[in-house]
């Protein structure tokens, strides 16, 4: 099958999930209770808001990842043809990975890879 399989699989996933939730809806006789709607925090009411500004530590990694991942995409087409191109490909990727590695060292030196 071709790309149509993607649509089929998405539909299958949706059907499976929705079917499960709907079947559960039929069986469940829920009771109403204001306690049920509370967020779970070990049985104590939540203090303050959850959706507030958050430590940047987590996002730094996402940014660095983005840079590296884009570089990684460039390696894919190279990887396919490397055996045909031969030695030249090795030198090219050496330069590429060298630059990438320098970037990595720079990020490391700047402390971007340290958890805050």
């Amino acid at each position: 099958m071709g790309s149509i399989s993607l649509i089929v699989l998405v539909l299958a996933a949706v059907a499976f999930s929705a079917g499960g939730i709907l079947v559960a809806k039929i069986f469940v006789k829920g009771t109403k209770n204001p306690q049920k709607g509370q967020a779970y925090e070990c049985g104590i009411k939540t203090e303050g808001t959850t959706w507030n500004q958050f430590n940047v530590g987590y996002y730094l990694f996402a940014l660095i990842f983005l840079i590296f991942d884009v570089e990684l995409i460039f390696i894919y087409p190279w990887a396919v043809v490397v055996k045909k191109v031969g030695m030249m490909a090795l030198f090219e990727i050496l330069v590429f990975i060298f630059i990438l590695f320098m970037g990595f060292l720079y990020a490391h030196k700047k402390g971007a890879l340290k958890w805050m």
Partner: peptide, 25 residues
């Protein structure tokens, strides 16, 4: 299946219900 699927009051209901679909897809 027999368990009640709760949605917390404070939750973003649309995203909360969408997330299981995303991971399944």
């Amino acid at each position: 299946v027999m368990k009640e699927g709760l949605t917390p009051d404070g939750a973003d209901k649309f995203l909360f219900n969408l997330a299981p679909f995303i991971v399944m897809i």
